[in-house]
Computed example of a mutant assay.
Amino acid sequence: MSLVRLGGAAGRPVMVVGPSLGTSVVELWSASVSWLAEDFQVFGWDLPGHGQHRPTQPSAITISSLAADVRGAVERVVPGPFHYAGVSVGGAVGLQLALDAPSLVVSASLVCTGARIGTPGGWLERADLVRAHGTRAVVAGSRDRWFAPSTSLTGPDRVERLLASLLDVDEEGYAAVCEALAGFDLRDRLAEVAPPVLAVAGEHDVATPPDTLAEVARGVRSGRLVVMPDVAHLAPFEAPRRLADLVRQHARTAVGATGSSSVDHRGPGAQGLQAAVSHG
């Protein structure tokens, strides 16, 4: 695995961003990066068989092995602590990184994800489907899961381009990531996660609904939930500036995190309704 440089001047703090299943990091994050690059050097990574990550022999992977690969790629390019933001499986990798390398992850923004995503049986069925029929078989389902109604109405051309790019994803790589998600479950280890976590949910997300992100925010040592209106499963694509503002704000305040969890349903900049959660 290698990192993709997405923007930002050398010498700024490092932000690493991760993709969702079926997308490349460039396609998913480029709009948000235009704002994040004002404060960070931004690097991204791609899943096996996606974007610029084209393994010649796809092999079995786990979320833990992906996290180790990301950590190794970062250490080769920009050694030292970094901020992290990831979507869906990219968020799962971020949660694993925060658990495995707390001294390296300054802040973790976990977007449209969960400590467990879906069910093992559902992921294994999807892996079999893609191996049998290619990624074309999951385009319609992705359309339903990925986008809020307002996104499909106001940006239909962008939506179609992103869905079309799904056809370029290697089917073995896609299936291997499905199998990795089938074996992923950190719900019993959330209390061990030390870096400050921002859990971002999409109001219309059926794949990882707000309750799934609330579980993460409540479970980690220092967590906060924000539910974004008019967003489904791909927040950096659907609301790039709003998400960039959230991630940037979280990164700036991470050092001063108090160790409590809070809920804010009004988006970036809102003081909001907050409910502290004691971790005992």
Rank of each mutant, 00 (worst) to 15 (best):
F82M: 02
S34W: 03
A9I: 02
V25W: 10
V78F: 04
V42F: 04
S65E: 01
R126Q: 06
G141A: 04
V26C: 04
L153D: 14
P81F: 02
P13H: 11
P55S: 00
V26A: 14
G11I: 00
L21P: 12
F147D: 08
L66T: 06
T135V: 05
V78Y: 08
A68P: 00
A127S: 02
L95M: 08
P102R: 10
W29T: 05
A132D: 08
P81Q: 07
A127P: 07
L104S: 15
G80R: 01
R136S: 07
R145F: 07
S65Q: 08
Q41C: 04
A67V: 07
S103I: 02
P58T: 08
S150G: 12
A85E: 06
A127E: 09
R131V: 13
R126A: 01
S88I: 10
G44P: 06
W35R: 13
D46K: 07
P13Y: 07
V25N: 01
M15F: 05
G49I: 14
R116Y: 02
L124Y: 00
H83V: 02
G18S: 15
V78A: 13
V70D: 00
G94H: 11
T151E: 12
V77Y: 02
P149F: 09
W45D: 11
A127F: 01
S88L: 08
S59C: 05
T23E: 14
I61V: 13
E27S: 15
D100L: 10
V16Q: 01
W35K: 12
V25I: 13
T23V: 12
G91C: 07
A137T: 03
D128L: 10
